[in-house]
Structures are given as C-alpha cells and as structure tokens.
Amino acid sequence: MSVKERAYVLSQDMCAEGIFSLVLRVSFAGQVCPGQFVSLFTDDKSRLLPRPISVCGADADEGSIRLVYRVAGFGTEYFSRLQAEDAIEVMGPLGNGFPLELAEGKRVLLVGGGIGIPPMLSCAEALAYTAHEPVSVTCAAGYRSSDTYLLEELEAVSEVIVATDDGSLGTHGTVIDAVRENGVAADIIFACGPKPMLRAVKAFAAERGIPCFVSLEERMACGVGACLGCVAKTERPDPHSLVKNARVCADGPVFDAKEVDLT
C-alpha cells in the first residue's frame, strides 16, 4: 500500500563527489523491498513532477529509508540541500522490487553501475540477513573512478569486485569485464545501472544461461501506473495494455532480462 506523506529528514551526507545519502523518517519503512523506489517532490511549484529515486535501505525499527542518489538536475540538487529536520513530500513504496525469493540457496551475482549501485546494496543486505537458505553473494560494482561510495558497506555483506571507467581501482573497464576477469560463477543475476551496462549484463546472462533480472529507468510522471508515461518495450504483451509496452513504474522497474528489449 503506497502513501504520500510529508517526511522528516533524519540525516544527509555526501558519500562521494555529487553522490548524496539521504535518510528520511517515513511511515512505510517496514513495507519496502529491495528494488522498489519512492517519488520525491520539491516544494518549487513550477517543478511539479515527482523524481523517482531507488531505495538503498530501509530500517523498519527506526521507521526510516535511505536514498543514495546522484545530483543530476534541478530536483536532485534541491534534495541535496536538505538537512536534518527539514521536511519533504515523499510517495512510496513504488514498483515491484527484485524477486529475492528466487535467490534462496543460490550463488547470486549483483551488478551495479554508477547510481545503480544503491539498490544492489539493499539486495546484498537483504540476502545476507534474511535469506532462509545460505546464499553466496558477489557484487560487481562499476564506478567512474576511485571516488567510490557504499563500497565498505557492500564489502560487509558480500564479495565485491570493482570496475572503474578510468582504471584507478579494480578492473579498468566495465563491470562485465570485471566479472569475466574474476571468473565469477553465478546461478542468478540482479542488475541495476545505465542501459548499455544492462544490455551487456543481459548478453552475459544469455551466453551463460543464467536467469537475470534488471531494474530499468525511464522518464516518469505519475509513478503509480496511471499515466503510461514510462514504458519499456517487452517481448510479450504487457499485463496492462496487452501491447508489449510495460509500465516501468508499476509493472517494473524490475523485469526479467529476457522479457525486455534493451536496444
């Protein structure tokens, strides 16, 4: 059950250049699953649409969620100026989340690229703390440079391999280069990141015959499935309109990689 409410900021820190970690007190923290997102609103009445931001973590006891995001425009710049005790309009939880139940007892490969890393941390933590059968989790994290974020937290709950665009840390190249270089074996893959990365992950999974789930990003308006503003091309008729255009916000953002056209 999603709600829209005014939430208080508990804290905000800068994790790396242009990357911020925002903790909000919300009523729905206990309902959030890894891979879901929330809509954040600015108080600027000329910028009305919500900004979808993936959830990096939720603390049901504290009643809080953590959002880690990159400043990329007006909205995220506005959010980055928020301080403890400020208030902000938030709607959530939204979207479907990763099917973590499929990872029980498996070797899981999490692939996060850039600002796709935060939801991978929430997956890694959920798998480490709540899986019924033992899982082994490897996280391939792709950064622009050695100015990393969330790396120690990932290392606390998973095996981590790193790729950087500039080669300043880990493998010089893509996350898939790092996965190949380290000979990572996996039974299931969960991924979030830019589309070219997801395309490469999908191809890698197809080549190895590994089930793979990807979290997509698209320009959104309502965020709840009503406006059909954010769609992803699908291989089969989508559940809403039966036309191979699934709603990223409501039918996703997580899709079986085989089911979505990432070209």
Partner: peptide, 16 residues
C-alpha cells in the same frame, strides 16, 4: 489495443 508512442513520452515544463 493501441501501443502508443515510444519512450520518452513525458517531460516536465514550467508549472506543467
């Protein structure tokens, strides 16, 4: 059924 247009389908503008 109509499939509509490709993404991107929405854009924010000043107060709209």
């Amino acid at each position: 059924p109509w499939e509509g247009n490709p993404a991107p389908r929405v854009a924010e503008t000043a107060s709209g």
